[in-house]
Amino acid sequence: MAKMRGAIVVDIERCKGCGVCVVNCPTDTIGLSKEVNGKGYHYSYMEYPENCTGCTNCAIVCPDGVITVYRLKVE
């Protein structure tokens, strides 16, 4: 059965750590990092990358447009 695998790339320095992507992720992929970026924000990252389906929900709700999404169909 075909399955969607996805991945996100976060522009860490532009991320403000608001967490809107975290609650919008339907597969609980995303979390906020313990580390902070140059501005002191806990940036978002793929906490459970294997969950990601590349649905883009996180990216389209991101107010700062810091998320790029990739998706691959795997058999």
Binding site: R5, G6, A7, V9, G54, T56, A59, I60, G65, V66, I67, T68, V69, Y70, R71, L72
Partner: peptide, 11 residues
Amino acid sequence: IIKPENLVFKR
């Protein structure tokens, strides 16, 4: 997965 041909959303 993170390859140009798999890109589905960017700013």
